[in-house]
Amino acid sequence: MQFTLKVWRQKSQSSKGAIETYHLSDISEDMSFLEMFDVLNDKLIRDKKDPIAFDHDCREGICGMCSMFINGEAHGPGRNVTTCQLHMRSFKDGDTIYVEPWRSSAFPIVKDLTVDRSAFDRIIQSGGYVSVNTSGATQDANAIPIPKEDADSAFDAATCIGCGACVATCKNSSAMLFVSAKVSQLSLLPQGQTEANNRVQRMVNQMDAEGFGNCTNTGACEVECPKGISLTNIARMNREFMKSSVG
């Protein structure tokens, strides 16, 4: 397969970036999108040029590192897949593919397609945890009966890998889907309920402080999320936030 790639190149956070064009041929349809980038970078290195910086790690769709905005969609045209799990057979031979970094003032560009997502870490640090006694007298979690529905909903929310596709795809750069998944996975379970009120307040405040936009319920995040995190989590967080503001 042959492709024309239009990739965003930017030397550093402060420098002005631009789209650059690359031509690739002999790409297998079974290659992942990242493997195609490996081929491109190999070519660039052999030509004594600067390879394209991009985030990646497990390449199994579970680590949340890969982050490319492909042809106007976070993680490209596939549904419920990350960029590393997107294969070249999803494109037509001869296609022109635009690849851009996540764009949000809260995710500053480090280089090329790599962005700094530590804003997410700071949101987690603000309250996305359960304070447990780890001194040895910890109660076995399995000893607490939990309704199957709650356990399933908590687990669904916990599948969020924190890749930031929701922020990247939202026209407002809102982080509501991410934060609501993290709030939900804890508050749905009895261990997380003790700190529920403080957690939602702190995490939402931190989210706002990081400069993410507001949710206008377009639903784009849910569609583009590689893990299919549901909008019901946002409604749950809104409920919890209002409840904790009153009580």
Partner: peptide, 8 residues
Amino acid sequence: ARPKKYVI
């Protein structure tokens, strides 16, 4: 929250 728009 998004000062720089996407090309596509």
